[in-house]
Design a binder for these strands. Sequence first.
DNA 1: TTGAAAGCGCTAACAA
DNA 2: TTGTTAGCGCTTTCAA
Lengths: 362, 362
Amino acid sequence: MCNRLRRPIVQYNGILYRKEGNMSGTQTGLSENLTIQDIADALNISKTTVSRAISGKGRIGEETRNRVLDYIERKGYRPNPMAKGLANNRTYNIAWVMPGDSSFTELPFFQRCMSGVIEEAGNVDYDVLITMIYGQDNTGLKRIISNRKVDGVILGRTLVNDPNIAFLKKSDVPFVVIGSTDEPDVIQVDNDHIKACRELTEILIMKGIRSIMLIGGDEAHVVNRSRRAGFESAIENMKNMNISVKSSIHMNIDNDSMTARLVDDALHDGVKCIICMDDLLCAYALDKLHRDNIDIPEDVRVASFYNSELLHNNVPAVTALQYDPLELGRTAAGKLFSLINGEEVNTLTNLPYEVLLKGSTQ
Amino acid sequence: MCNRLRRPIVQYNGILYRKEGNMSGTQTGLSENLTIQDIADALNISKTTVSRAISGKGRIGEETRNRVLDYIERKGYRPNPMAKGLANNRTYNIAWVMPGDSSFTELPFFQRCMSGVIEEAGNVDYDVLITMIYGQDNTGLKRIISNRKVDGVILGRTLVNDPNIAFLKKSDVPFVVIGSTDEPDVIQVDNDHIKACRELTEILIMKGIRSIMLIGGDEAHVVNRSRRAGFESAIENMKNMNISVKSSIHMNIDNDSMTARLVDDALHDGVKCIICMDDLLCAYALDKLHRDNIDIPEDVRVASFYNSELLHNNVPAVTALQYDPLELGRTAAGKLFSLINGEEVNTLTNLPYEVLLKGSTQ
DNA sequence: TTGAAAGCGCTAACAA
DNA sequence: TTGTTAGCGCTTTCAA
């Protein structure tokens, strides 16, 4: 059951005759598995001409082209991607690579990036194949590459000394990363986290805050290092302006109890502002503060270096940096298609960000 | 830049000679783009023989086969999927279709199902192409189907009168749905929600609860109708046993304020147990109860027809039904590959569930 | 047990 | 402007 239709081949005297036309009066109203040969036969022209009409490459008479295009339109012809792929050495697929650990996979960030990638791919009739990296295990990616299942790859995030980047560089497949890396010659699409975090931190300090705690995530992730660097650079800048700020930084925090403990410490030490590197950490911190009936912003201010739905229902609204992951995905895919088409692409692209100043730091 | 290697074709006197061997001393240690012809040449046998050694089909000498397999192993040969696909009329890809509205995409449920699908696909050297349905808009799915980019499709959830199921049935592409449907002849993988919800409801009633409110989601989703049916059937059963239970059902609830209002009503009406159809609704309800300082289970008991991380941090722990989405994904993919290989597959598969009785209904 | 050759559906170089 | 033909890398039929 469920076999695709195949044009019947009829055999007489050991000679193969292809049955003319196509056999389907289909339910979808589309002729299935029509080939350019069928079209050529129907219009009394050659395959080449049909191919030219479709691709737009090579000279072809205006009238002939229209005849072909009309016919194709009417019959709902779609080229066979396998055949095209074989002839062009292309798959018309790209890969989207994202972390497989559920704590990351489920972050809206990656979902949105992926949507952007899919959207952009659809525009050029490409599809998106998905694979996950589970910790160190990138067998999925390796399979896809060595099987030559895609024309390019988008890496959803970057690690410090990223083994996947190293692998992709060697693999000779075009790729783009969402995020930043020190690795040279890698096409990167990112937000300028250093600048954004510096800006937000400086704004808070300018508001008079003189004691800040920064709660940060896994240092293996480039983005977390960038956020830290932005924060530190703000503190440094202020110092140069003779504004001295007491600050502490706590990295590699990844669960609610660690966060709660830090929040306790902060309150105990008279910290006036807690900045969290991402939405999840911030949600943990807010949770803890609410449980303890601490008033925000009266008792302590709170800000997040990444905004998301997780923070949307909080009262008061949370000051945060806002990015557009959908656009990151779209842009990365756009760059990748340029690469695939052999165009030059600049290495670094920074997308804009917004600083949302809300009640939590009033 | 970044173009794939192509074997150089050298032309003398108008005759094309393919340059022997392959040109790469590659960084990956794998010979790239080796073909069966190259292997045949190297071993002084024919393409056909090589093909036979690889596929295992057709007669071939033990020794020849081993020579070929050894060579392939050493050189890291991987067949070109485009060429194989063209010859076999296969793509070696399947599609995973899930709702694109962010409120759904981001549910852990779909992520896990997808992981299961990807895992199972990897086992048979297939890859997973992803597409999303945005409300009524299934152009992505249509593109994939009419472009013949996949050998089969897995639909991540079912709707009442699902237009995607109708579309796929007409399309002649094998497909499996995760969820249930009234549509005949559709391969379905699901949990028995009716039975599970009936069971949990009956257990709660047996514990002495005589007034229950059910808060449910979108009735366009088959799963929500099933959960409702299970609940109703429990009430009915109890009635037949002369246990009369006061109950109310509220469907199509999809945000926190609607939920909060219902919780208010429940408390006002002396409802003793609030059951939510899914994790998100339950999280909304718990939020509201905590804000109002209502004691669980003393003042009101709470249960959920779907367990997830969203409920894990609640105190007390929440009574809920538990499923294994990863296994749903794996199973659905397994069925799909059977279909693709022309095997018979039974239409209905129900995976097990667990009833977790926790503190929230003590 | 092995090989020659045709075919999958498309592109592109060359000829007309 | 159009057609002929070879080729992409694999499978499969038929013959040896």
